[in-house]
Amino acid sequence: MNILVVLRMIPDSAGELQLAEDGRSIDREWLDFQLNDFDDHALEEAILLKEAGGAKVTAVAVGEGTNRVLQMAAARGADEVVALQAEEDAMISSREIAASIAAMARAKSADLVLCGVQSSEDVFGQLAPYVGALLDWPHVSGTNRIVANGAVLRVTQERGAGVAVTYELATPAVLGVQTASKAPRYVSGSKLREASKTPIGRAAPESSGFERSAEIITLRLPVQGGSGENLGGDAETVADRLVSILAAKGLARN
């Protein structure tokens, strides 16, 4: 089985997000980027499938800092790693990259395409449906367990409230992974250092072929609320402080 895994780099949410001048995007210049968590699970699921029944795993990464993540993928067991060129300093739009992923799936004779169910830049989770549609392959999203038996896949999907359904479908297929069957493994620094020698392939993007349907007109950052105040350690100080706060807010008489 040939598995293609999509790894998207997204802005590190722990960083300080700032709006770009046009007010419609994030200023990406000073941001750190990290692998989309769901894609990390997709990678893990691919490696688990490889370990369970043998497969060739190709990881394709999009965005900033892909080299590091692709080396990590190789250290975890990906057989081939490819960086997909994308427009710099831009969000990773599923509509934009779907055609490239589909083309690569064909080029690599993939039987299975795995990606994270969503990303912070695609909360609709459009990548799997888009790629599935372009390839005319079946797709299931929100998986938390994938078992391969030859060309037949059993895919479990979380439906909330503990309800889970299992689908059976034949490859080729596209799956949007919510969680891998096991938590993503830790890959040691020494294995990462070894993997740093892995050759990283390059792939040029395909034109998306879609007409623009909607565009972002404005982006708003969360408003910084008032931060908490530590009222101190001993009861008397806390009580005094509480009384004066309540009085200041007109909720109590001083």
């Binding site: 590190d12 722990a14 960083g15 300080e16 000073w30 750190d32 590091r68």
Partner: peptide
Amino acid sequence: ALSNLTRLGNSMGKPSKM
């Protein structure tokens, strides 16, 4: 912690710039 250290050089998962 180790993944944060690998990615960001600190165990807390905070950006280097901070």
